[in-house]
Amino acid sequence: MTDRESASLGQRKKARIDRLAAAGRISEDEGVSLWQSAWRRLRTDPIFLVGATIVVLFVLLALVAPWIAPHDPTARLLIDQINRQANPIPDPQPGHPLGGDDAGRDMLSRLLVGSQQTLIVGVMATLFGLTGGLTLGTLAGGIGRWVDAAVMRVVDVMLSIPSLLMAFSIAAVFARPNQWTVILAIAIIQVPIFARLLRGSMLAQRHSDHVLAARALGVRPAAIVFRHMLPNAIGPVIVQATLVLAVAIIDAAALSFLGLGNPDDSVPEWGQMLGRAQQYFNTEPQLAFYPALCIIVVALGFTLMGESLREALDPKSRR
């Protein structure tokens, strides 16, 4: 290397240092991703905290229910008190603060243990629905062209049928309904909702500059879909999933209410308890009131979480 070259190298180095100063301040701290910054906002959002508290309590309850339930939820402890005409439902009494159900089983214990089954139905149905929706949405939004057209026509047809009616039809197909038929029925009606949402969100990404930039870099199409489009499109779907969880629990109750739920009531579930309560609704409303209240509170918890998550992920309010 000649002297002149090294001198010009020195100059160039100086020019680079000047450039550094010209770019303005950059802190030395580690970068904060969008999810991290959303989490920071959520941590101080009272609405999210209320929702999260409800949900966490519900999950904890479901985990420890068998140990804290005062009685066996399937034991017909109060069957002796039941008189078909005069007193179909055992009243609250010492040891049974909420009384019993129409089969003489302890109400409080059934509610506590019922949280387990309710959680399983809600989470499983949403998870299956989400998986199906993500698959279809990614196919439609990622590949486009005729795949998109085909997927979206199927989705349109599914969406044109009222969702509960659809769930009833699916559940009714099975000769012997059980827990899994309920989950499947609810999952299937969620699929088009997730698929459509993700597809729309993916299409917006497809036309964004950063996807164009990745194409210009020579990144493979599959990598563009999974590395750039999907992660940026999934936010609204996650929000939707938390809202759908609440709806799934209510839907399960609706299925049970119409006798399409799990007939095996040895494992209690809130929706199914609500369904059984219908024949006593006029005379003994508390039988429906307790599970209904539980469902509403849990659904509210998920909805509050979902709404605050939507706020936190909104790019317009990002800082």
Partner: peptide, 11 residues
Amino acid sequence: FQDPLGSLDPR
């Protein structure tokens, strides 16, 4: 690109 924010993947 023109829009420096939109052309960088935010994640």
